[in-house]
């Protein structure tokens, strides 16, 4: 176990210090109470995620600057198919609606400004990803089960990158407001879960290694990212499971995202990237044998963002999974 931990730490270290990132749409695949982490067979999952950014941070200080707001609605359609007991392939198709109401920016001299009349609204297909998961350890005892799986995938540049503001300037929207990144990126992850009777502890790492894409009419590269998660899930009901019965789980997790700095036309953007940590309570209902419902709320408890930038205020995620 110590050796496996060393491998996890090593991968974390490599991803953290290769320093380029992107807001990761697919990271919730491996976070919190997602049933995709351990599920087998085939099915489809639809998730809706709402994220709000309206607070401005300088490193870990929340500044008294108001008027800018970004909202992200992401609907993800995920199809998964178990080729064998150990190998599952997943395809993720996101549909996004990104809304900007008021634009926050940092001038070259370091001063900040908020233009409340700057607005933007983009809706459409995001970047599609295809992933494969290989479970290389599944160990059972009477009252414990341990799973360790690796995840690898590719995200394709299927989302638009030329969305414009709705104001008179008609300038291109910022890179993170675009539906896609314009880049082909590579995803790599590890997940481990250990269940003891009614309690399951799961931990996940998902890294994204980016390539150069575009935003508007400029070359743009998001930084690499690492999403991590540690979640405890407890089966509240029932005491004894029947395959046709219902189950209720409560979950509580700590998770976060580390993003590297972005580059625009080869120049590093000082006010980009950083680290955000969330606490995420959630609830999951399993209506066997076909349905899984889950709802979770993520509240950021720690921001350490590079330079000055908008930080997340909260996000809410709900999902429905149907197993064929």
């Amino acid at each position: 176990m110590k050796k496996l931990f060393a491998v996890l730490v090593c991968i974390t270290w490599i991803l953290l210090f290769t320093d380029k990132t992107e807001a990761c749409d697919f990271c919730l695949l491996t976070q919190g109470i997602s049933p995709l982490e351990t599920i087998k067979g085939k099915g489809i999952r639809i998730t809706e995620r709402y994220t709000v950014l309206k607070s401005v941070y300088q490193r870990d200080d929340k500044l008294d600057i108001h008027g800018a707001k970004e909202e992200y609605w992401t609907t993800e359609f995920t199809g998964f198919y178990g080729i064998t007991e150990k190998i599952t392939v997943l395809a993720v198709v996101p549909v996004k609606k990104n809304i900007m109401e008021g634009h926050f920016h940092v001038h070259k001299d370091g001063s900040t400004g908020v233009h409340t009349d700057n607005k933007g609204n983009e809706f459409g297909l995001g970047d599609v990803a295809v992933l494969g998961r290989y479970t290389f350890l599944r160990k059972h005892s009477l009252d414990t089960t341990t799973n360790i799986a690796g995840l690898a995938g590719v995200k394709f540049p299927t989302g638009k990158t030329d969305g414009r503001r709705e104001d008179n300037s008609s300038r291109y929207l910022d890179s993170h407001m675009q539906l896609g990144t314009g880049s082909t990126d590579f995803l790599l992850g590890l997940s481990m879960s250990h269940s003891v009777r009614r309690l399951t502890i799961s931990t996940n790492l998902l890294g994204a290694i980016t390539t150069e894409g575009e935003a508007g009419n400029e070359k743009h590269q998001f930084g690499n990212s690492l999403n991590y998660d540690l979640t405890a899930r407890y089966r509240v009901y029932p005491g004894v499971i029947s395959p046709s019965g219902q189950q209720l789980f409560f979950a509580f997790g700590i998770n976060g995202e580390v993003r590297g700095k972005e580059e625009e036309e080869g120049v590093e953007l000082a006010n980009s990237g950083g680290h955000t940590v969330y606490l995420s309570p959630g609830v999951q209902v399993v209506m066997a044998p076909h349905w899984v419902f889950e709802l979770s709320y993520s509240h950021p408890v720690y921001h350490k963002l590079n330079g000055i930038q908008l930080g997340e205020d909260y996000k809410i995620s709900g999902g429905v999974t149907y197993l064929f």
Binding site: H140, L142, D143, T145, R197, V240, I241, S242, P243
Partner: peptide, 26 residues
């Protein structure tokens, strides 16, 4: 613990009294 993960569940125990397999579900 024999049925903590749900029923029906079946175990196959070898001649040495060791569980070698578990079938979960019908």
């Amino acid at each position: 613990s024999y049925w903590i993960w749900g029923i029906p569940v079946s175990y196959i125990i070898d001649r040495n009294g060791r569980i070698i397999g578990r079938a979960m579900g019908p």
